[in-house]
């Protein structure tokens, strides 16, 4: 369903079938939890090693977390208009007087588009080992993120097509990484991003069938679960024989 507020302006989208209302938000909440774990650990690595790559990695997942949070807020605005009747809900609603659930949804989606694109772009930059010293490349890619966000507001499909391309590049880089180090955890990371890539392909076509949205969300959930596996495996590692 597409709710248009302003011609060529922000649009409000709801692709979920009614029986799936809220389940997509739960899936995104799981994605947020996985992302927060990665943010926490990579930031801890940064504090210990002072190596900027860990800080950038946590920034990428922070951006993805903000993107998913915005989507949850946006979709819940449509799913649960009764929230505004609660005391907290009405307070928040008063702060945004004049905003209908559809305009909240439309604004939240712009924020979602921007942070998801920024997050995947940052991740792509990190794993491609592009030099952060090359400011011109960074500025050009930041401009690309802004343009992609802007056009995605008018044509949501462009957003998923862009995340698909970014994830394709990310997955390929992770595949190369796996081939190089032949590590079980690296294989799980590659599979996780491969699954997320497939989910984005499904998202491109959600306008044609609501069931595609359900499938895309479930595939996305599987991708984030796979992303959690290498993280768990690393932490399951017990200290070796302590000798004396």
């Amino acid at each position: 369903m597409v709710f248009e507020n302003i011609p060529y302006g922000p649009r409000s989208y709801v692709f979920s079938p009614e029986w799936f209302y809220g389940f997509d938000s739960i899936i995104e909440l799981i994605a947020i939890i996985v992302s927060i774990l990665l943010i926490y650990y990579s930031y801890k690595c940064f504090k210990l090693t002072k190596e900027n790559k860990y800080l950038y990695f946590s920034t990428a997942f922070l951006s993805i977390t903000l993107g998913f949070t915005a989507k949850i807020i946006g979709t819940l605005a449509i799913y649960k208009p009764t929230i505004t009747r609660t005391s907290i809900g009405s307070t928040i609603h008063e702060a945004f007087t004049g905003l209908t659930p559809y305009s909240i949804n439309a604004i939240a989606l712009i924020i979602h588009f921007f942070f998801m694109l920024l997050g995947f772009m940052t991740l792509f930059l990190i794993i491609s080992k592009l030099s952060w010293k090359n400011k011109r490349v960074i500025v050009l890619l930041a401009y690309f993120v802004l343009i992609a966000t802007w056009i995605s507001v008018i044509h949501y499909q462009l957003f998923y097509a862009t995340t698909f391309v970014l994830l394709l590049l990310i997955t390929y880089s992770y595949y190369q990484n796996y081939r190089e180090i032949k590590n079980e955890k690296a294989r799980f990371v590659t599979i996780a991003f491969g699954i997320l890539l497939v989910s984005q392909a499904f998202f491109v076509f959600v306008i044609y069938s609501r069931i595609i949205y359900v499938l895309a969300e479930l595939i996305q959930l599987l991708g984030f679960v796979y992303l959690l596996i290498p993280f768990i495996l690393i932490f399951k590692k017990k200290p070796k024989n302590r000798g004396l």
Partner: peptide
């Protein structure tokens, strides 16, 4: 080190 290698950092 493992985290860094697995996540391509």
């Amino acid at each position: 080190k493992e985290f860094s290698e697995s996540f391509g950092l």
